[in-house]
Amino acid sequence: MNNFFQAAMLLLTLGCLMCLYRIGRGPTAPDRTISVDILGTLMVGFCCCMALVTGQDYYLTVAIAWAMTNFVGTLALAKYLEGRCYDA
């Protein structure tokens, strides 16, 4: 059982590295914003794995709270992007 979840978390880490590549490299600001959003959603997956490995359900509470803050943060960043108009 633990081997399965270790493998799953390793794969999720790989996904996080891909997101980090896009955050660092991404040519425009929206690219980075969407990557941060995806990274936050991957963290919910980590919380699922941790909940099953430890058998504690409060990790899912953490996942819900994380999803909420991630959503609000992304909306705030998007609102900021919308405010700046490049071509007049």
Binding site: P30, I64, M68, E82
Partner: peptide, 26 residues
């Protein structure tokens, strides 16, 4: 509950970011 929440909010976030991207001229 968490699955429902992710399912409801994720498309909204993507929509907001893309709208911001288009309006900022990407």
């Amino acid at each position: 509950i968490c699955a429902l929440f992710v399912l409801l909010t994720s498309p909204v976030a993507a929509h907001a970011v893309l709208r911001g991207a288009y309006l900022s001229g990407v």
